[in-house]
Amino acid sequence: MMMKAPVGGAKHQLLPSCSLLAILVALALPSQAEAAGTRAGSTISNTASASFDTGGGTTTIDSNRVDLLVDELLDVTVASNNPADVPTTPGATAQVLSFSVTNNGNGVESFRLSTVANVGGDDYDPAVTQLYIDNGDGVFDPATDTLYIPGANDPELEPDESVTIFVIATTPGSVVDGNRGIVSLIAAAVTGTGAPGTAFPGQGEGGGDAVVGATGADGTDNGAFVVSAATVTLVKSAVVTNPLGTADPIPGATITYTIVATVAGSGSVSGLAITDNIPANTSYVASSMTLGGTPLSDAVDADAGDFNGTRINVVLGTIAGGQTRTVTFRTTID
C-alpha cells in the first residue's frame, strides 16, 4: 500500500515556495465560520514524524511541535419563533412575541438584548414594555420567566446554546383591523461587535482574543403583530300593526321590534349581549322574544333571552366577524 505514494524521486524540492503560494492562492476559498466549533481557549498542536533507514536500521524522529491557541469567535443569531403574525386587538396589553437567541460562537458569551419597534414596513409601532427570559419551557409565564434587565442579567450562553426571549408589548388603541406592527429583537455580544475580523485582545475565553465572526457578533430578527379587530353594528326597526289593519300606532296596536347585530372585521367580539328597555306607555308581550327566528323564554334559564319586567336581554356570547344575529320582540301600546 505504502508503495503507491507517488512522492519522491531524484529532485526532492517538490514544491518550491513560490509555486506553493500560487497553488494556495488558486485553491483558496473565503474562510467560513461554522456553528460553535473548537472551544475557545483550547490548543491545536501539530507534530509530524519521519522514519528512515540510513543503513543502521529504522530511525524515527519527531518534528518540532506547533501550538496554536484557539481564539473566541463572537457569533450570534436571532430568529423569530412565531410562524405567522401574532393576532392582537386595539389597546391590548401583554401581547407576546417569541424569539430564539443562539450563541454560534465557540466560547461562553453574554448577549445584550434590545428591541426596535419603529422599523418601518408596517402600519403601527407596538409599545414594547418588557423582555422576559424563558425558563426553558418555551411558554411565556411572568411568574416563572425572568424579567430582563439590560446589563444586569444579560443571558449567558454556552457555544451552540439557545434561549427563548419573550417581547411583551402593548397595542395602541388607535389601530384598526388588519394593521401590522413589527418589533425587531437585537442580541449583541457583550464583549463587542463590529465588522467580521474585529479583534478584542485578551478578551476571549481561555485568554486569547475575542474575534468578531461572520454575524458581526450581533443578530436581529423581526416578529409581527396583526390587528384582528371586529366592530358591531346594531340596527333597530319597528313595525306597527293594529286591529284596524293599518300601521297607525293607536292604543292596542302591536309593535314588533327587530334588532340586527352585524359583526364585521377579521376578529371576533366576545361577551356580546343585546339589551333593550321596554318604552314607556307600552307593554312587553309575554314570550315574544326570538333569536334567529327561534322563540326564547322570558325566564333566566338555559336559553339566551330573559325579560325582567323593564327590559329584554339576549346574550349572544362570542361572534366572529362576518356574522349577524337577529333578535325580535313585541310590545303593545297601552
Binding site: 494556495l24 483558496a28 465560520a33 461554522e34 466549533g37 491557541l69 473566541e72 469567535l73
Partner: peptide, 21 residues
C-alpha cells in the same frame, strides 16, 4: 490571500501545514 504565521486561530480559519525535510 496572505499566509500568516498565527499564534491564535478561530474556527473556520484555513490552515496550511508545511513539512520541510
Amino acid at each position: 490571500i496572505l499566509l500568516e504565521e498565527p499564534k491564535v486561530v478561530v474556527p473556520g480559519d484555513r490552515l496550511v501545514f508545511v513539512l520541510n525535510y
